[in-house]
Amino acid sequence: MTENKQSLEIAGRQYDPSDYGSASFLGAALAETHEQVSDAYMEGTVEAAVDRENGPDIPLSQPE
């Protein structure tokens, strides 16, 4: 496959749930990106914070 055709194939690739078990770099990267977007969406807020497992969250913005 020529480099141009391979680039077009990669650019057109979309997330698939089977990517979570993928051995390919692209599949794993798509699964990780999907997880990050899903987590940010489900958080339900635009305020950035560091989520701490054992303690309070740390807000990244300055209080007004």
Rank of each mutant, 00 (worst) to 15 (best):
I10L: 05
Q6P: 01
A40R: 14
K5Q: 07
T33N: 14
L26T: 08
P56G: 14
N4F: 02
G21V: 05
I10C: 04
E64N: 12
G27D: 01
P59E: 05
E9F: 05
L30P: 01
G12I: 04
Y41Q: 12
E9C: 04
A48I: 02
L60P: 00
E35A: 11
Q36N: 06
M42N: 11
E9A: 13
I10F: 04
V46H: 12
I58M: 10
T45G: 15
Q62M: 07
E43Q: 15
R13N: 03
P63D: 06
A40T: 10
E3D: 11
D19R: 00
A23L: 09
P17D: 00
E9S: 14
T33F: 08
D19E: 01
E53V: 09
V50H: 06
R52L: 15
N54D: 12
I58A: 14
L30V: 04
A23T: 15
S18M: 11
G55S: 05
A28E: 04
E53L: 15
E43R: 09
V46A: 15
A48R: 15
I10A: 03
A29K: 08
L30F: 04
S24C: 05
I10T: 06
S38G: 07
P56F: 10
D51P: 00
F25K: 00
P59C: 01
V46G: 06
E32D: 13
A31C: 07
L60F: 11
L26M: 15
D19N: 03
S38K: 14
V37S: 06
S38R: 07
E32G: 06
S18T: 10
R52E: 15
V50L: 13
G12P: 07
E43W: 05
P56S: 14
E35M: 09
P56E: 15
P17S: 02
Q36W: 07
A40I: 09
F25C: 01
G27F: 02
E9W: 07
N4Y: 06
S18H: 12
S24Q: 03
F25E: 01
V37D: 00
N4D: 10
V50K: 09
P63W: 03
S22R: 02
M42L: 14
D16L: 11
D39L: 08
A29T: 13
A28C: 13
G55E: 03
